[in-house]
Design a protein around this nucleic acid. Structure first.
Lengths: 177, 177
DNA sequence: GGCATGAGGCTAATGCTATTAGCCGAGCTG
DNA sequence: CAGCTCGGCTAATAGCATTAGCCTCATGCC
């Protein structure tokens, strides 16, 4: 991955976060980079490829974030651990809401992802749970609940004045023990 | 709403479900209707308007579905009721996955919705819970969890072989009582 | 019966999107 | 110095939403 490529990827990421996922286009990226649209094809074979690089980087950053929290906040209390993980999940998603949307809303072509990036995010998320099949179900239900809470919040689906932290509290309590 | 309008709306809905949300465009709709694209503007003022009509109809159909289940399956057991609601939620979303995506993934312009449609879906979903603030949090957490489970399933994010029904079971058990 | 009106088509055109082909200059490397 | 590669460029295509303006047919009204 050349330096110029990384430059353009970061430009694209800032474009997405600052102007919304809907503004993500090669035309807008080229404009921000002060080059013509077709020149972008010297660095990426297609929009899909660039998109999946950004998604992969999102997965990896997500994994790093969660792993950091898990390492520094490991407590004896099950509820504390779940709460810390939940808080980290929400904080990360709300810090990068448009890229979170990109990561979760688009049909995923796994052949275009940076190998292992999706798994890294999953592992970071699920490592807290044991390896029994029953715990796998529990892990996936918890993941889904966190994703649902975050995704409804990002897309503004909770009524104004809704106590979102309260809903997170219910979720944490329901999944502790 | 003229008969021709309804005809075109239903054509658009079948287009979305049969060819995926990504295939939803005025060009494709016009092709299926055997007319030219600009003629669609005799019936809808913009793509956004048509999109929000379809979203509204999705909300209303969702509400009808859930209300029906709640009326016919009311049981004394809290867990049975939650399970019936959860099953209905999942069944509905999986029966109309692409329109469910349209309903939940797009930025919502509430001024363009059929008035009351979003609320109808919310009410159907939340009427099972009491009116106390604490129960509101519980209702929203449950809603988010169901949405998360369905949205991850539709977008193929669970690993192959994952026991999705098992995850739903964990969710139902966690939210019963 | 004739006439106006509206519904619902149409074509042409604009400016956006991704994408491909092909050209050109600058800089490094043999 | 020759040549290659990197990274720009223009021109062009096809599809996208959208607007303006034209035409035709059916309906209702005088």
């Amino acid at each position: 991955m050349s330096a110029r490529q990384v430059e353009l990827i970061e430009l694209a990421e800032s474009l997405i976060e600052n102007f919304g996922l809907e503004a993500f286009s090669l035309g807008n990226l080229a404009k921000k980079a002060n080059i013509r649209t077709p020149s972008l094809y010297k660095h990426f074979s297609s929009l899909m490829e660039l998109e999946h690089i950004i998604i992969s980087r999102g997965f990896l950053r997500f994994a790093k974030d969660l792993n950091h929290v898990i390492e520094t906040a490991a407590s004896d209390s099950d509820e504390d651990n779940i709460a810390a993980l939940a808080a980290a999940y929400r904080a990360h998603a709300l810090a990068h809401p448009q890229i979170y949307r990109l990561m979760t809303e688009r049909p995923l072509d796994r052949a275009l992802l940076i190998p292992g990036s999706e798994l890294a995010a999953m592992d970071a998320l699920l490592q807290y749970f044991d390896e029994t099949p029953e715990q796998h179900d529990r892990a996936r239900a918890a993941w889904a609940a966190a994703h649902g809470l975050v995704s409804l919040e990002i897309s503004g689906r909770f009524p104004p004045g809704a106590n979102i932290a309260g809903a997170w509290g219910v979720f944490i309590e329901a999944f502790s023990r």
